[in-house]
Simulated assay, not measured.
Amino acid sequence: MTREDSQGDTIYVSSILSGNGKRVVSSHFKGGSVSAYLGGSEVDLTSATIASEGAVIDVNCIMGGIEFKLPAKMKLQNEVTAILGGSDVEGSPSSVTEGSTLIVREVLVLLEALASSIYPSLDITLIVG
């Protein structure tokens, strides 16, 4: 899996039959998109600061897996549309009521339910803290 740092305010990650990762170090992160088609990605946001107007990450995943690592003190809004798939939030999302919100909009197809018998690691996971 290829991993690299992203210092920009937006990210665009695409994995097709492969794997890659990004560690975001922006102090004004606005969002972007992450896609995985028969592949996988890791996005580490633990060193990022969300822009004051918030951030939106659009996620599209078909028979793949994406893992997000989030800081413990981040407001998270997870919006999921799943067809034979699922999304997990691991850890304890904090009860932060102030500050910027990270919105993760996910469209997931053929994860967990159907694909787990073939590829057990297929999943979308948001790890908090």
Score class of each variant (00 low, 15 high):
residue 8 G to A: 08
residue 8 G to Y: 00
residue 8 G to S: 07
residue 8 G to N: 07
residue 11 I to H: 00
residue 12 Y to F: 12
residue 14 S to V: 15
residue 15 S to A: 15
residue 15 S to Y: 09
residue 16 I to P: 01
residue 16 I to F: 13
residue 18 S to V: 06
residue 19 G to Q: 12
residue 19 G to M: 09
residue 20 N to I: 10
residue 20 N to L: 13
residue 20 N to E: 14
residue 21 G to C: 13
residue 21 G to S: 15
residue 23 R to N: 07
residue 24 V to R: 00
residue 25 V to F: 01
residue 26 S to W: 04
residue 27 S to F: 00
residue 27 S to C: 02
residue 27 S to K: 07
residue 27 S to W: 00
residue 28 H to I: 01
residue 29 F to V: 04
residue 31 G to R: 02
residue 36 A to P: 03
residue 39 G to T: 11
residue 39 G to W: 10
residue 39 G to M: 11
residue 40 G to S: 15
residue 40 G to F: 08
residue 40 G to Q: 09
residue 41 S to H: 07
residue 42 E to L: 13
residue 44 D to F: 02
residue 45 L to D: 06
residue 45 L to K: 06
residue 45 L to S: 04
residue 50 I to E: 04
residue 50 I to R: 03
residue 51 A to T: 09
residue 53 E to S: 15
residue 57 I to D: 01
residue 60 N to V: 14
residue 61 C to Y: 03
residue 62 I to F: 15
residue 62 I to R: 03
residue 63 M to G: 01
residue 64 G to V: 07
residue 66 I to W: 03
residue 66 I to M: 07
residue 69 K to A: 12
residue 71 P to N: 12
residue 72 A to P: 10
residue 72 A to T: 14
residue 76 L to V: 15
residue 76 L to T: 13
residue 85 G to D: 09
residue 86 G to V: 11
residue 86 G to L: 13
residue 86 G to M: 12
residue 86 G to C: 11
residue 87 S to Q: 10
residue 90 E to T: 11
residue 91 G to T: 12
residue 95 S to L: 14
residue 96 V to E: 14
residue 96 V to Q: 12
residue 98 E to F: 00
residue 101 T to P: 01
residue 102 L to V: 06
residue 104 V to S: 05
residue 105 R to D: 01
residue 107 V to T: 13
residue 107 V to Y: 03
residue 107 V to R: 09
residue 109 V to A: 11
residue 109 V to G: 03
residue 110 L to V: 10
residue 110 L to G: 02
residue 114 L to K: 11
residue 115 A to P: 00
residue 116 S to E: 05
residue 117 S to F: 04
residue 117 S to P: 00
residue 119 Y to T: 11
residue 119 Y to C: 13
residue 120 P to G: 05
residue 120 P to M: 07
residue 122 L to S: 04
residue 124 I to A: 02
residue 125 T to Q: 14
residue 126 L to R: 11
residue 127 I to K: 11
residue 128 V to H: 02
residue 128 V to D: 05
residue 128 V to F: 06
